[in-house]
């Protein structure tokens, strides 16, 4: 039911995800679109010593997409890129295969468990992962911090 889907935690995260938090001088940026609905997420990153030092974003999407973007930006800082890949796998498993919530610090994604019943919305949650994965593949490490 939407009553579950649009719980307060998601709405609050969505409000943060709706803000324009682009970085001034990112090491890389990437924009991805959801061809099904036209949603768009732009992610910026700064990378230092092989770890994500800062994440910026701008979204044009639904509440789930915005909330996921905000959560991902929070959780990704100071992580290695490989950690993000594991977290994305865990989110996919949670949504599509009734898996448990992701391990910390991505356990905040548990708020999306009601979206399990709405497969058409899973891509909304995953879109920021697509953007971040893409930018990390292209970004140049900014060096020692």
């Amino acid at each position: 039911m939407s009553d579950d889907l649009y719980q307060q935690a998601i709405l609050e995260a969505a409000r943060r995800g709706a803000e324009n938090r682009r970085l001034d001088r990112p090491d890389g940026s990437s924009t991805v679109d959801n061809p099904l609905c036209g949603d768009r997420v732009t992610m910026d990153v700064c990378v230092r010593d092989g770890r994500i030092a800062a994440v910026g974003f701008r979204t044009r999407g639904c509440a789930l997409c915005q909330a996921s973007t905000a959560l991902l930006a929070d959780a990704a800082v100071s992580r290695e890129p490989g950690t993000l890949a594991r977290a994305e796998d865990e989110v996919v498993a949670m949504l599509g295969h009734d898996g448990p919530p992701p391990a910390p610090p991505f356990d905040t994604y548990a708020m999306f468990m009601p979206a399990r019943r709405h497969p058409s919305r899973h891509t909304c949650v995953r879109l920021p992962f697509d953007a971040l994965r893409q930018v990390l593949a292209d970004a140049t490490d900014g060096g020692s911090s």
Binding site: M1, D3, Y6, C37, D39, C62, C124
Partner: peptide
């Protein structure tokens, strides 16, 4: 409000 969110609420 994004159209998908409108549609999701209306679906309920």
């Amino acid at each position: 409000i994004h159209p998908h969110d409108v549609c999701q609420v209306l679906d309920s």
